[in-house]
Simulated scan of single mutants.
Amino acid sequence: MPAEATKKDLRDILELVGVLHADTVGGEMPTPVLARLAAMVGCDSASYCRVDHASRRLLATVVEPASTDLSESAAFAAVLGQHPAFVAHRERRLPTGSSVALTDLVDLRTLRSLPIYADFYRPRQTHDQLLNIVTVGRHQGTLLVFNRSRRGFSGRARELLDLVSPLVCQAIVHRERLTRLTCALRDAQRHASASERAAGRLSGLTPREREVVARLVDGIGDREIARALGISPRTVNKHLEQIYRKLGLQSRAAVVAMMRGAQPVPESAAEHHAPATAGVTRIAAQRRS
């Protein structure tokens, strides 16, 4: 156990990590977690920041309290690149997972001369910051930043943040993965609904359009469809435009997915072509009944 962190500190950290994994609604960093971290570290305000360290831009922020958020200020964005952390990162003086104070990175005289401090931090009584890089990639990174109205941070504050950092990193990866899976599920549900609606509109296709659909399911291209039906590729394209419009679908792949979900796969190659056309008619008849 770290020298200054207590058992209660460790229990609080584990509880916060549990909230991070359980809360899937609050974006990358839930505000209540950030507020509790600020209280543990002993700071006035806290930020979770995703930055492009190549262009020195803020990409996303969560700030607690929200009244201290500067991310929407164009003037602040213009001077953000002056922050000593960007210089320290380029010079490899800002390792991942290790806490560092703003006053560790630059001497007081230099800090006071920086517009970002004189115009933004000092008027808001931010005289020091404790920073920790949670994740870092080639162009982007995420940081936890804690603002304080007095200079200096205790060993306990630094130790707590160093303990939290890798756990927050794991939680962020978990939340990002869950977000991707949720989006994929929503997309699948949306496509399934579109396919179901399209299957109900099959009866609106002309006999020739049904023949084109049947060949689409066979997986052949426009020229092959044209040769099979004795029409020109241009006519095939016109039929496809009408099919997409009538079924409310956007692509050949969507029509094929709808048909394969709506009818059984033929059991033999000999049955492959004729039943495909018949299948369109059969499904349309079933929808009418």
Rank of each mutant, 00 (worst) to 15 (best):
G42D: 01
A5I: 09
R177D: 14
G261V: 00
V17N: 13
G42Y: 01
D222G: 11
S268R: 09
L10N: 13
I283F: 07
L160S: 08
A38M: 07
D119K: 08
R90P: 13
A228D: 12
A60R: 10
L202C: 03
L202R: 04
T6D: 09
L161Y: 05
L202M: 02
Y244C: 00
T110V: 10
E176Y: 04
A60Q: 14
M258T: 07
A276N: 01
P266F: 03
R234M: 10
D218F: 06
Q189Y: 00
A184V: 00
V41I: 10
L249H: 00
R148N: 09
A226T: 04
F146E: 02
I225W: 00
L185A: 08
H139Q: 15
L202V: 00
L144Q: 03
V136F: 04
V280K: 01
A157Y: 07
Y121M: 05
E241Y: 00
L205P: 12
G200M: 10
V164M: 14
L160P: 12
D52R: 11
G141E: 11
V51N: 07
E241V: 01
R138Y: 14
P30K: 02
A78C: 15
E91N: 15
V255T: 01
S113A: 12
F76V: 11
R215D: 13
S55C: 08
T31R: 04
R177Y: 14
K238D: 02
D9L: 06
S149R: 15
L108S: 13
A269F: 09
Q250V: 03
A184N: 01
G200H: 10
G18Y: 09
T235F: 08
T110N: 05
H191P: 02
L216T: 07
E64Y: 15
V17C: 13
C43K: 04
V173Q: 05
M1Y: 07
L105N: 03
Y121D: 06
V255K: 01
L59P: 13
Y244K: 01
S55Y: 08
G200N: 10
K7V: 15
A85T: 14
A60G: 13
A192T: 03
L10F: 13
A257N: 07
M258S: 04
D218W: 09
R177K: 15
D162H: 07
S268E: 10
A101Q: 03
Q140W: 11
P264M: 00
H239P: 02
L58V: 11
H83F: 11
A254C: 02
I225F: 01
Q170C: 11
F153V: 08
E176G: 06
R227I: 06
D222Y: 11
G200K: 11
G97V: 06
Q250N: 04
H174Q: 06
L160I: 14
E159C: 10
A118E: 03
Y48V: 05
A5G: 08
A194Q: 08
S232Y: 01
R197W: 09
V136R: 13
M1P: 08
L167N: 04
I116L: 06
D187K: 05
V280A: 03
H127C: 00
